[in-house]
Amino acid sequence: MKIFYAVQATGNGHISRSMELLPYLQQYGEVDIFLSGDNSNLKLDAPITYRSKGLSLYYTCNGSLDYWKIARSINFLSLKQEIKQLPVEKYDLVINDYEYITAAACEAKKVPSVNFGHQASFQSMNVPRPEQKSKAGEWLLKKYARADRYIGLHFEPYDDFIVTPVIKKEILEATPTDEGHITVYLPSYCEPQLIEIFSGFKDHHFEIFSRESKEDRRVGNILFKPVSKAMFNKSMIHAHAIITGGGFETPSEAIHLGKKIMAIPIRGQYEQCCNAAALRKMGVMTLDKINDNFPEVFKQWMEDYKPIRRDYSQSIPLSMKKLFES
């Protein structure tokens, strides 16, 4: 079997998930990878057959999307050409983790595909949404990468085509401990803003993973670290608690490890607002934004909120079963 696997590289989560799934997919056939997007901090540790700048997300330094930079990065003529040239028709199975060019190529060439990933779960209205729904956000989640079949991943199996998150092997095999530090990953904030936010909590030590850092750098009670899979895994496994955005992979891993979480969605990213709604229902503290009340909120979180835990160890076998036996 020849398998085409489209991986979105607009963030680290899609790449992290693909590296875990690839060995299992290779048991079923020869896998060619299409990597699309250019603002991930992680490298895909596998041969890449097709590469595209694709459609990427960019951020400000204050917790929101940079819409102007996103718009400027889009080359419609190049996209049209890539859609035409992408050889999806040569494959027995096309797996798409929320990637637009692949979806458009399959639609144009009448090639069946499977949308397999977190965003696929939003085809179900059973998946939690924020009180204020976004029509544009709902359209993007449901129509941006259309497919013939959907296999979704989410914190809970909200529907019959949804399974629980794919967790990295290093996390599955880890023995969590509490060394007292708080692991922070807020990619839509820059280091000056992060220093302003966290330097006032003198009684707490923060390990902050920053897209700006090339090496470890200490600023008072903050240790800035470059985004690295191995270092982030180690920090999270031994953390007292996790502060992260409203993404999917990091909260999932923190939940599997039984760590206390604070989730702060990137403003303007509707999927993250939906994730926050789901986490809130599970008992996780979520914030719309960081403002002047943050010291009081942080204190409440430290004193009143408890970790939650789910066992996600069977997620990959369940995912493969749905993918190849349906």
Score class of each variant (00 low, 15 high):
146 R>G: 04
127 V>T: 07
120 A>F: 04
143 K>M: 13
162 I>Y: 05
137 G>F: 06
146 R>C: 02
127 V>H: 00
152 G>H: 03
146 R>V: 09
123 Q>T: 12
139 W>H: 10
157 P>Q: 12
153 L>A: 05
147 A>N: 10
160 D>T: 06
153 L>M: 11
118 H>M: 06
129 R>T: 11
141 L>M: 14
151 I>D: 00
128 P>G: 01
157 P>F: 07
133 K>C: 13
140 L>Q: 07
119 Q>S: 14
153 L>W: 01
149 R>W: 00
130 P>K: 01
149 R>T: 04
118 H>I: 05
141 L>A: 07
140 L>V: 15
139 W>Y: 14
143 K>E: 13
130 P>T: 02
122 F>L: 12
130 P>V: 04
124 S>R: 08
124 S>V: 13
163 V>S: 05
124 S>L: 07
124 S>N: 09
126 N>H: 15
153 L>Y: 02
120 A>H: 01
136 A>R: 14
118 H>F: 04
150 Y>Q: 00
130 P>A: 00
129 R>G: 03
144 Y>T: 05
148 D>W: 04
157 P>T: 08
126 N>W: 11
154 H>D: 12
148 D>T: 01
153 L>P: 00
148 D>I: 01
119 Q>I: 11
126 N>R: 15
138 E>I: 09
128 P>F: 08
120 A>E: 01
119 Q>W: 06
152 G>I: 10
131 E>Y: 08
158 Y>W: 08
158 Y>S: 02
129 R>K: 10
134 S>M: 07
124 S>Q: 02
123 Q>K: 15
160 D>N: 14
153 L>K: 03
136 A>K: 15
133 K>Q: 10
131 E>I: 00
136 A>H: 14
120 A>Q: 03
150 Y>R: 02
138 E>F: 12
145 A>G: 12
153 L>R: 03
142 K>P: 09
142 K>M: 11
129 R>I: 07
131 E>W: 07
151 I>C: 01
129 R>M: 14
162 I>P: 06
159 D>C: 02
155 F>S: 02
145 A>I: 05
164 T>H: 05
132 Q>R: 14
126 N>D: 15
134 S>G: 07
125 M>C: 09
156 E>R: 09
117 G>S: 11
119 Q>P: 11
142 K>V: 15
162 I>G: 04
120 A>S: 10
125 M>V: 08
126 N>L: 14
147 A>E: 01
164 T>K: 11
119 Q>M: 13
151 I>R: 00
154 H>P: 06
154 H>N: 07
152 G>R: 00
120 A>L: 13
164 T>P: 08
